Simulated scan of single mutants.
Amino acid sequence: MNNEFTFTIKSIRLDENYHPSNSTRITTNFANLARGESRQQNLRNALKMIDNRFNALANWDNPKGDRYSVELEIVSVDMDIAGSGQTFPSIEVLKTNIVDHKTNERIEGIVGNNFSSYVRDYDFSVLLLDHNKDQPKFSIPANFGDLHGKLFKYFVDSEAYKSHFSKPPVICLSVSDNKIYHRTENQHPVLGFEYQPNESSLTEQYFKKMGLQVRYFMPPNSVAPLAFYFFGDLLNDYTNLELISTISTMETFQKIYRPEIYNANAVAGKCYQPNLKNLDHSLTQIVYDREERSQLAIAQGRFAEEHFIKPYQTVLEQWSANYAL
Rank of each mutant, 00 (worst) to 15 (best):
E292V: 02
A56F: 04
F165N: 14
F253D: 12
N265E: 14
L283V: 04
N22E: 12
N17D: 15
F207K: 02
A266L: 09
D123W: 00
N55G: 01
R39Y: 08
Y161K: 01
S139K: 10
Y181A: 03
N32S: 10
T314Y: 11
F138N: 09
K137F: 15
F217Y: 15
A324L: 12
E159L: 14
E159V: 09
Q313H: 14
A46R: 01
G85C: 02
P225Y: 08
F124R: 05
L43V: 00
K162R: 15
V223L: 07
F308S: 13
T203I: 11
M210G: 02
R106L: 13
N275V: 05
E16P: 05
Q187L: 14
H101R: 15
Y288V: 05
D100I: 03
R53C: 04
Q205L: 14
K310P: 07
G149N: 06
Q285G: 12
L14M: 10
Q135A: 13
E105N: 14
V315W: 01
V126P: 02
E16H: 09
N113D: 01
T103A: 11
L234Q: 06
E108A: 13
K137T: 15
V287R: 07
S200K: 13
V77L: 02
G65V: 03
N2K: 14
F165K: 12
L226W: 02
L151M: 12
E4P: 00
L43C: 01
L234P: 08
T28I: 00
N104W: 02
N42M: 07
L127T: 10
T103K: 09
N143P: 00
N42E: 03
F207C: 00
L72Q: 09
N221Y: 05
E105L: 14
T252E: 08
L173F: 12
N32E: 10
V111S: 03
V214R: 04
V93M: 13
E105S: 13
I107Q: 10
